[in-house]
Amino acid sequence: MWATNLRIIGIVLGTLALYTLIANKIPQVQSEVPHALTLGANVTPEQLVAAGDQLYHGAGGCTACHGLGTRAPNLLTDEKGLGPIGARCGKREAGKDCKAYLYESLTSPRAYVVSGYEPIMPEMGRILSPQQIWALVAFLESQSGTVDVTASDIPAASGPAASAAPAASGGGGPGIAGGSTEPMTIIRGAGCTGCHKVGTEGGAIGPNLTHVGSRLSAALIRECILKPDTRVAKGYEKFVGVMPKMFGNQLTGAQLEALVQFLSSQK
């Protein structure tokens, strides 16, 4: 009987261990609480680095891609013999020092794409506040480099401390996708393809935009982008409120027009 009992206990523990192991093998994503960051005018580099550390490992979501090995370059450890990010950031782009490069990497990641990787990194200026971006820059610099971010780099917090709510183009950058007016670049950069299908790309949450020009005039398309819910696409009544309402603030005038022209020509 003891043999049977032991076998049963073994099976129970084995099954539990298997499930626990599998759940620990998959990517670990924790859902963080959006966190308001207030940095005073006399913030020290150490405080910035500490805040950046927290963001990096938490609400910033960086570890969903970085540090896994294949999906994105290692930042905290060596990457292809160039050392951690603080050691290599000054050598990436001619004429850009470490600080400028890191800021660019975060706010317009497609401006310089590290070779061997795909441009999948989100534009962090849309998710994080300027304070948070600068804290991250300081933290990344601290990885085998020298921290030269100071309080003067950080724009004075405008109004209530910027929260994690999508902030319009972080740090006063030139709009989505680095200000590009190439329509597909805007569409990708603004994340339209997260919800809409355009040609062969994109998801199926919103209406397919491949032939949107044949159903909507340019004026209506503009309106749909600026005030998404004033005109609801047929069959999508239940999806009202899903399309973000901040594109009007994020796109530059030229970008909006380029986008509208492009979409209305999709017949």
Partner: peptide, 15 residues
């Protein structure tokens, strides 16, 4: 404890 933990931690709790 407001953050929602990742599956690995959850799995240990569940087990």
């Amino acid at each position: 404890y407001a953050a929602t933990p990742a599956l690995g931690y959850a799995a240990i709790m569940i087990s």
